[in-house]
């Protein structure tokens, strides 16, 4: 199992506490392509944030690749995110001042990889997502779909064991969305990339191995 989740709870404290995740249990195997679906407010993003170490659960246990995420200090978490996890956010979370190539090699630079190697690796990764001819474009010189592909290349460049994506196609037209989903499918098939993707689109089901349904912070059914 690459991910094991046990009795996971997340409550947002406030005047009226929100029990965003109530009691979540599931496992994901290496190489699975999972869709996380459910109505708005059902807790999809919250769950992804807990799995991806962007937030701390209120209770429960998450094991990734045999490591208990709860045991991490802040610095260890940071290192784990850099080396083992990749994210794609809903709106293309790129730094406006970095070119496509720079955005993609940033995680490699952070991992103290040699300059020659990181430029080569990042260029190859951009070629893989179909942007071999846009290496030196800034985000404002790229379309939304292209920006999202840069974000995907950045998420993958460190060979993460899991790729997380929170509604990666929500801001894209159907054509660009298709390109992204096909890309995910390809990565999943070719390099056995584990992917967990939040989506609203019922049609997306056809790309994935399995759907985890959430309702009011609980897993409703899996198929």
């Amino acid at each position: 199992m690459i991910i094991e989740v046990k009795n996971l709870k997340k409550t947002y404290e406030g005047k009226v506490p929100t029990h965003a995740l109530k009691n979540i249990n599931f496992n994901i195997k290496k190489g699975e392509f999972i869709a996380l679906m459910g109505r708005s407010g059902s807790g999809k993003s919250t769950l992804l944030h807990q799995l991806g170490l962007l937030d701390r659960p209120s209770a429960g246990k998450i094991m990734i690749d045999g490591t208990n995420l709860m045991s991490f200090s802040k610095e260890q978490g940071s290192k784990f995110r850099l080396e083992k996890l990749g994210y794609v956010f809903q709106s293309y979370a790129l730094l406006p001042e970095l070119t496509a190539l720079e955005s993609v090699y940033l995680p490699l630079m952070l991992s103290n990889i040699d300059k020659k190697i990181y430029i080569k690796t990042a260029s190859e990764m951009l070629k893989k997502v179909g942007l071999g001819n846009k290496l030196h474009n800034l985000p404002r010189e790229l379309s939304g779909g292209e920006q999202q592909r840069v974000a995907i290349a950045r998420a993958l460049v460190n060979n993460p064991i899991i790729l997380f994506a929170d509604e990666p196609t929500a801001n894209l037209d159907s054509e660009s969305s298709k390109v992204i989903l096909e890309l995910f499918k390809k990565l999943n098939k070719e390099i056995n990339q584990t992917i967990i993707m939040v989506t609203h689109e019922p049609d997306d089901k056809k790309y994935v191995d399995r759907v985890i349904w959430l309702k009011d912070g609980e897993i409703q059914e899996e198929d």
């Binding site: 610095e75 940071s78 080396e83 979370a93 952070l110 950045r154 998420a155």
Partner: peptide
């Protein structure tokens, strides 16, 4: 602010 969040999400440490 948002860029800082993203940098942290991809694993950049606070001190950097």
């Amino acid at each position: 602010r948002r860029q800082i969040g993203i940098l942290k999400a991809i694993g950049m440490g606070d001190n950097t």
